[in-house]
Design a protein around this nucleic acid. Structure first.
Lengths: 193, 193
DNA sequence: TTCTTTCTTGACTGATCGTTCCAGAATATG
DNA sequence: CATATTCTGGAACGATCAGTCAAGAAAGAA
């Protein structure tokens, strides 16, 4: 009945994600977004609402993407602990392959906004909880398959792995060289032994 | 020969530190700073230069303070590994005692600015290196005193401990409850066993 | 006291912030 | 083709941003 949208909302969202991810929430202006998303000011507000709503949409899309890739990587047969090790090493590898050192949108947001913005803080918490839950399920499988030391608590380990990787992201954003990061990850993973 | 300053530059800096620490660099406006520092716009620019120079001064003062307290806490006789454990548990305890959940200025800055602002990134890197060095020296002492497993590399462990605590800060800012954080720290420290 | 120097105060700059709005372009339907 | 609908592009909003500046206040030196 009318003129169709000239832009793909999901493609535009991906551009916005990339911007927020690289520069953070405060440092990303609507001006930047309009330019990168190949979208008009009016269309942006009409489609996504204000800046915060757009950011929340980015968070959701980002988290869904991460959760999906996580599922396919962690939900595999074979030795459970090796699956975790492979997953974590892969995460680092992927991060290192990014020349802009964006890190992780969830971690970046946790540091920038969690304490102030309640609604955003909740999404950060749930994203981290979902990551932790993914580790937890694999660790439960490890326990069932007898791969885990008896004095190890899957819940505590899942929390720990989540945390350790957040730490790696901070060091990574602080400019720590790749080789040091790999060494750190291996030291951190040695808890699983 | 002339009218003396009506404010104490160090006291003012402390107020600025508190603000940058709590809200981050971008989200802290000059308006906020003049209000909190009990200083005038003109005096601020006259004394500290622009916003970035003021921030760098804050970073330096913050890091010097941290380094000093670190020295007094880590440079103690007795079992070296226990000194590290005590130090790290104390860090968490102090963080938890802060109702504003500021975390750590260095970590916050690493996440917000390191990738973009070169000069600030360098300070972040050197601050983390200095923390790592402090761990390293205690770990060397641990090795000499035979407290460390032979397959443990002090340099790798120092890097790891630095990283693990950065991760705890992220989780902490994301709202993780105190008890979970304590459990995470203990799991992380178990690498030393 | 008077002079000189420095600090303080607050108004002011141009730029940019997030957001709104409207006129005109574009397209599917009748 | 005409009409109805929606999108686009850009101007404009008030607020706030970082930073400047000039005039008045204050205090040590003479």
């Amino acid at each position: 009945m009318a003129r169709p949208k000239e832009f793909n909302p999901e493609t535009a969202l991906d551009k916005a994600i990339e911007l927020f991810w690289r520069k953070g929430y405060e440092a990303t202006s609507i001006e930047d977004l309009v330019a990168s998303m190949d979208i008009n000011r009016g269309s942006l507000y009409e489609t996504f609402g204000d800046k915060q709503k757009l950011f929340l949409a980015c968070m959701d899309r980002y988290c869904n993407g991460m959760a999906a890739s996580r599922l396919s990587l962690l939900d595999q047969p074979g030795p459970a602990l090796d699956t975790i090790r492979r997953f974590i090493r892969g995460k680092l590898q992927m991060a290192l392959a990014d020349p802009t050192r964006k890190g992780c949108l969830v971690a970046n947001t946790a540091m920038e906004l969690s304490p102030h913005e309640k609604e955003i803080g909740e999404r950060v918490a749930s994203a981290l909880a979902s990551l932790q839950e993914a580790y937890y399920e694999v660790l439960i499988r490890a326990k069932k398959q007898g791969e885990l030391r008896k004095d190890h608590d899957p819940r505590a380990l899942a929390r720990y792995l989540t945390t350790m990787m957040q730490g790696v992201i901070v060091m990574y954003k602080a400019g720590t060289p790749a080789e040091a990061l790999r060494e750190i990850v291996e030291t951190g993973l040695s808890v699983l032994d």
